[in-house]
Design a protein around this nucleic acid. Structure first.
Lengths: 107, 107
DNA sequence: TGGCGATATAACTATCATGTTATGTGGCTA
DNA sequence: TAGCCACATAACATGATAGTTATATCGCCA
């Protein structure tokens, strides 16, 4: 069950999270982690997504900048982090993205 | 035919226009101008929407601030201005909003 | 044409977003 | 337990947003 997103302010915060070329790029890459990131020795990319480090490198920004983008997406509920063995993997939250699409359709 | 919105940067700019509580509010009001704004002596609210002045007043911000919000929505193609007799009326661009909803659904 | 009412633009200020470098934290692993 | 590696947080610089007041523009109408 995803968080309810009903009021204008809620929509606003999720849209703000989405209104960034970098973060849109991340979500696009995460559609197919295997295709867009190097093979991971630990963590199943299909199940848990790509690790923080790979995403940051592919973005081409500093590690803190990349981590913050991932935090924004996480706080908005658009991606789901999985912490494992010192790495953090991120995958899309398809349910939240579907909710958002429905909300935007109602704007 | 509405402008094509395909690249990530295009989506980004439209999402930025949308990611504002004030602008979301304006779009919501414009769903039913007759219900949300005073009667207009000039300009058909059904056909052309609500005039700048009414929208600004209802927003509760200064006239330039309100006008700028409307400019952002206009530049993003989300509303359509109609200039007539010294007033400017704004109505929703339903085609663009539908395109946007489809794009968000594809994120 | 003179003035007025509606909107646009200019100039400025405050806050937020995004980037950087430096440093802290916390779990492996040798 | 010592050190390393991944990630998080702190502190700061800078550019974009959104608000304000003041002023310019522009079409009606008397």
């Amino acid at each position: 069950m995803t968080a309810a997103m009903s009021s204008l302010t809620d929509i606003e915060s999720v849209l703000k999270a989405l209104a960034s070329e970098r973060r849109l790029q991340i979500l696009d890459w995460l559609k197919d982690p295997v295709a867009h990131f190097p093979p991971q020795e630990h963590g199943d990319p299909e199940a848990h997504g790509a690790c923080n480090q790979f995403i940051v490198e592919k973005l081409g920004v500093s590690q803190p900048a990349g981590s913050r983008h991932l935090k924004v997406l996480t706080d908005a509920g658009l991606v789901i982090p999985t912490r494992r063995k010192g790495w953090v993997y991120y995958r899309r939250n398809e349910a939240a993205l579907a909710d958002l699409a429905a909300l935007v359709a109602s704007i």
